[in-house]
Amino acid sequence: MKQIFQILKKIIIIVSAILIYGCAVNPVTGSHEIVLMSVEGEKQLGEENARQVAEQMGLFDNPELVSYIQSIGQRLAEKSPYQDVNYQFQIVDLEEPNAFALPGGYVYVSRGLLVLLNSEDELAGVIGHEIGHVAARHSVQRLTRAAPIGLVTGITSAAVGIVSPFLAHTVSGAGSLLNSTILAPYSRTQENDADAIGQLLAIKSGWTPEGITTFLNTLDRETERKGQEGDQFSFFATHPSTPKRVKATEVRAVELNAEKKFQQKRYLIAKNHKAFLNKFNGLSLVLMLDRG
């Protein structure tokens, strides 16, 4: 009887949370969806966990390179359909090639990813993809789906603890963001959506929409060269690639290039390929020193 009472109590908590946070309009699709987090809660969550990223992973100390990343990011963010958050861009001090986004507009690329890039269009494609995850509120959707399961089963994890202050006080243990819930692979639909948003942002901002496609092909070749599927915290581990996904980005790029309403005058911050490569001088040496 006591167990039934506890389950009913948790169900009431879930329903109450839904009533509090209610139905929100997705900024990308325009459709209504149930979320257990307000925009202000999303911002607070992002701010708190951005501090954890800085403490646990570390940020790469290269002001000139960070400024370059931020310039690309802010230009893309200006075209984002989601303008309720303050987009911020940093380089995380990891040799594994990856990029990820936190709720509230925090976007990161690793220095290990930067050395694999062949063009500014690729970099814009990667950053645009991560902005796409933020704009579609994919992390908020994931946490919303995970919260009821955690409450009903009694599992205490970051998936429950960081959804909102209301839910955090309901179960014990706030947990840490840096776990499989946030950095686990996105669904295929979410990946395709983020690709589509990123490609649209790229062409609207003066870059070509093929960037994400060529980067995925480069990363795929690099993974094959190493003879492995990628580290636990590699781009492919958190953003799984499939031939269908790569093909979809190729087709979408052709379509976007054909639509005159999306075409903008190409405008690169690094004026040519040599200037682009010069931005990353020394990064390869840092990676070699890491690997000893």
Rank of each mutant, 00 (worst) to 15 (best):
P165V: 11
T214R: 14
A168M: 05
G198L: 06
D220W: 15
A174G: 06
A184E: 04
Q199Y: 04
A168I: 05
I182A: 06
W207E: 08
W207L: 02
T181D: 11
G198P: 08
A194T: 13
N179W: 03
L183K: 09
R188A: 12
G175D: 08
G211F: 01
K204E: 07
Q199P: 00
N217Q: 15
A174Y: 00
A194L: 02
A196H: 11
T170G: 09
L177R: 06
I197F: 13
G206Q: 01
E191Y: 03
N217P: 14
T170C: 01
L216T: 14
L183E: 10
L178C: 03
T208Y: 03
L167R: 06
L183Q: 09
L201A: 12
A174D: 11
L177H: 07
S205E: 13
D193S: 12
F166T: 12
N217D: 15
T213K: 09
Q190S: 04
R221Q: 15
A184M: 02
D220R: 15
A194V: 02
P209Q: 04
E210Y: 07
A174M: 04
L201P: 10
N179F: 10
Y186H: 14
A196Q: 13
D195Y: 01
K204G: 03
R188N: 12
L177C: 01
V171R: 07
P165W: 08
I203T: 05
V171N: 09
N179R: 10
A168D: 02
R188S: 13
N179A: 02
Q190R: 05
A174V: 01
R188Y: 09
A196S: 12
F215K: 14
W207C: 01
R221M: 14
V171I: 08
R188V: 09
F166N: 02
L177I: 00
T170R: 12
L167E: 03
L216N: 15
D195C: 06
A174S: 07
R221K: 15
I182P: 03
T213C: 13
T218R: 00
S187R: 03
I212R: 12
G198R: 11
G198V: 03
A174T: 09
T208E: 10
L219T: 03
P209I: 01
T214D: 15
S172P: 13
F166E: 12
D195A: 04
L201Q: 11
T189K: 07
D193I: 11
A168V: 06
D193T: 12
R188P: 05
G211K: 00
N192M: 13
L216M: 15
P185Y: 03
F215P: 13
T214P: 15
Q190N: 04
L177Q: 11
A168W: 05
I182K: 01
A196M: 07
A196F: 06
T170Y: 08
L216D: 14
T208D: 00
N217I: 14
G211Y: 02
N179M: 11
G211M: 06
Y186P: 00
V171S: 02
N192T: 14
P185E: 00
L219M: 01
